[in-house]
Every structure is written in C-alpha cells, then in structure tokens.
Simulated assay, not measured.
Amino acid sequence: MDIQQPVYILAFLCFLIFLSEWLCKYTKLKHLSSSLLVILLGAIAANFGLIPSASNASPVYDSIFQYVAPASIFFLLLGVNLKELRQAGMPMLIAFGIGALGTMVGVTVALQLINYQDVFGENYAAIAGMMTGTYTGGSANFNAIALEYGMVKEGAIFTGIVVADNIMTTIWMLITLSLPALMRRFRKNPETIARRTTRHIEHTDKEELSPLNLGLLVGIVLVTMFISDWLADWSAGQGVGIPSILILTTIALILAQMEFIKRISGAKLLGMFSVYLFLVVVGAFCEVTALAEVGANAIDILVFTGAIVLVHGLIIVLCGLIFKLDWSIVAIASQANIGGSSTALALAKTFKRTDLVLPAILAGALGTGLGTYLGFLVVGIV
C-alpha cells in the first residue's frame, strides 16, 4: 500500500482526530487535552509507518502548514469581541495585564536558567515568543508564532514543549484552585463583585454549521490569507518585513468586531478542527530518533516552562498584595493567561463566582487577541 497517496493521508489524519476526541470524551484519557493526544497519535502512526513521517514527508503536510494552520488561527480569532471587554471589569483587566507582563518577564528569566542555545539552538527566540503567546492567552498564539518561524517542522522539540506546557498548565490549575483560600489566610483582600449581566453564558464546542455559513467563512478566510501574503510581500519589498500571520491576526480581529461577522456561526468549530488537523501533522514529524535527542534536554525544557509560570505567578500574586485585588480575580486572571478561556471559566465555576464567569471568558478572549503581538515582540527583544 502506498502511504503517500493524498486521499489516504487525509482520511487517516481525520480518523486520528476522531480517535483523539473519542478517547478524551469516553475513556480515562479525558484528563489529557485533545491537543496533546492528537499529537501523540500522529507521532505513533508516523513511527509505525502508517502515515509519512518527517523523513518522507508528504506534500499534503506542507499544504496543511501553509493553508490549514493559518485558517485555524483566523477562525478562532473571530470569537474575540473587543467591545465586550469592558464587561470584564477593571479589576479583572488589571490582573490580566499584570499576568501578561509577568509572562514576558518570566520568559526572559527562564532563558537565563538554562543553556538555551544548546537546548533550543537557533530557535530559542522563536520558542521564547511561542511561550509568551501561549502563556498570555492560549495555544492559538503559540501556533501562530511557531508557523512563522517554521517550528512546526521541528516535530520533536515542538512536541517536547507541548508536553511540558501541558504539565505546567495542569500544575498551575491546581495551584490557582487553592490560591484564594491560601492567600486569604495571609491577607484578606476585599472581595470585588463583578457587575451582573443578563447575557446568557454558554461555552461549548458545539455549533451549527450550514452550507451557507461554511461557504462564507471559507471564502472570507481564503481572501484574508491572500491579502495577508500580498501585504507581507509588499512590506518586505519596502524593507519592513511584517509577518503574514501578524497581518492575518490583525485582519481577523478587525472582522471579529463587525456585527455581520458575529452572526455567522461555525467559526469556532472550523477553527478547532483545523487546529487538530495541523497538530496531528506536527505529531507526524516526531520521529523516534529525533525524540531521543530531545530526551537529553527534557529536564531543561521543564525548567524553562516551569520558570516562566513561576515568575508569572509571583508577579501577579505580588501585585495582588500591593493593589489589594480580590484573590479569586487574581487566580482567574492568571488562569486566563496560562490556560485560556476554558480553564479560567472552569475556575470561576469552581469558586462558585457566577459574577466572574463572563469576565473569565472575556479575559481569555483578550489573551487570544493579544498573545501573538506580545510573542512577536519578545522574539525581537531576546
């Protein structure tokens, strides 16, 4: 059987996406994220010769990196409504901003704790930007910067960082769960009740997607990708060199504020499927021989990611002490930075703070919109 057949490859990749979602929903593997699981399944399939690996990569993979991955970022950004941010409340926005600053400081400090040029080689700046993006608001930012600097084809190191990221995100979730109760023993800051809203809060992966919406969304993203590439080439000719993915991010955020675009359902569904299709190919680039090389640096990668989260946490807690912020808000804002909207929402529900459910979602959305810009900024700085 010829495993290089494009139809066979696409069919197998889609099956792996289905399998990862099924395992996360109906088995004990539900404690793993679908993103990590789909990478691992892709790596297993490639190393057993069921689909092409990095050494015999298919043109299908290049097409997914070139078209599907940017489209996934675009679709996910269409859910960022900047006008709603005022409903998050100033305390949440202040805590979130402090947390984002803490992430940037953390990345700088973490680089000094390891021999980053030996561990990451010439990719250290890109990895610093990726971690800044993901610990500002989620994996969409991580993927955007990884795409721009070709890190998606560094399958082993990419997967190593994803694994370390998942470990640290889980640990930080446990810490932020206990943070308010712990800090109230030290200093009982006043509780800030967020302004109530009549808006119905719904956070789900389920969306309606009609042929009408599908055709419109796909058409919009393809036009945006064409414009982004054209503007990137034009700016390079002017000696500026603005990354195409940064232009695409900006256009997506502008479109997301338009009422017409907000009424089109299905963008999140397309975004998540596109992300999984992109990540399963990343997994296919993880050959066992390459993973063995990363194994020697596994501790350094864990130290690097752990230090970023630790410095972020110390800064946001210190500012909570100085500005006497509600500890529940501090914990949720930090989780919006490190884990994104989903984990921030889960934290608000765990604290039984229904008044903070919407602010948690909005803070996560702000991180999705802001993280890519901060990531590219850090790439330039380090």
Rank of each mutant, 00 (worst) to 15 (best):
R353N: 07
L23S: 06
F75K: 08
G137K: 07
P52R: 04
C24I: 08
R187V: 09
S274I: 02
T134A: 03
L255D: 03
A363H: 07
A140Q: 09
Q4H: 15
K188R: 15
A365T: 12
G295D: 11
E208I: 14
D300I: 00
G215L: 12
G375Y: 09
I242P: 01
N115P: 00
V294Y: 01
Q238R: 12
G215R: 11
D229L: 11
V240N: 11
V119M: 03
T343L: 14
I98D: 03
G160S: 10
A290E: 15
L310I: 08
K28C: 09
A126M: 11
V38T: 13
E154I: 02
I193N: 12
H203S: 13
V107Y: 13
M151F: 04
F260L: 10
A128T: 02
G121H: 12
A292E: 13
V162H: 00
L222K: 06
L279H: 04
L37R: 00
L16P: 00
A256M: 03
A252N: 01
L270N: 00
P243F: 05
F120G: 08
I171F: 15
R196K: 15
E154T: 09
F120I: 04
L231I: 14
V275Y: 04
G369M: 02
S34F: 02
Q4Y: 06
L13I: 10
V109Q: 10
G133T: 06
T134Y: 08
L217Q: 11
C286T: 15
T170I: 12
V152D: 09
G219Y: 08
A110F: 01
L222F: 12
F323P: 03
V38W: 07
F96P: 05
F226Q: 15
L85Q: 08
P6E: 10
G89I: 02
F12L: 14
M90F: 12
D2S: 07
Y61C: 02
A292I: 09
C14R: 03
M104L: 08
R353Y: 01
I39R: 06
V107M: 09
S20L: 06
Q257T: 14
M131P: 00
P190E: 13
A346K: 07
N189D: 11
I98A: 07
M151C: 12
N166A: 07
I114F: 06
T170P: 01
I51F: 01
G320C: 07
P59G: 07
K153E: 13
I193C: 11
P359Q: 14
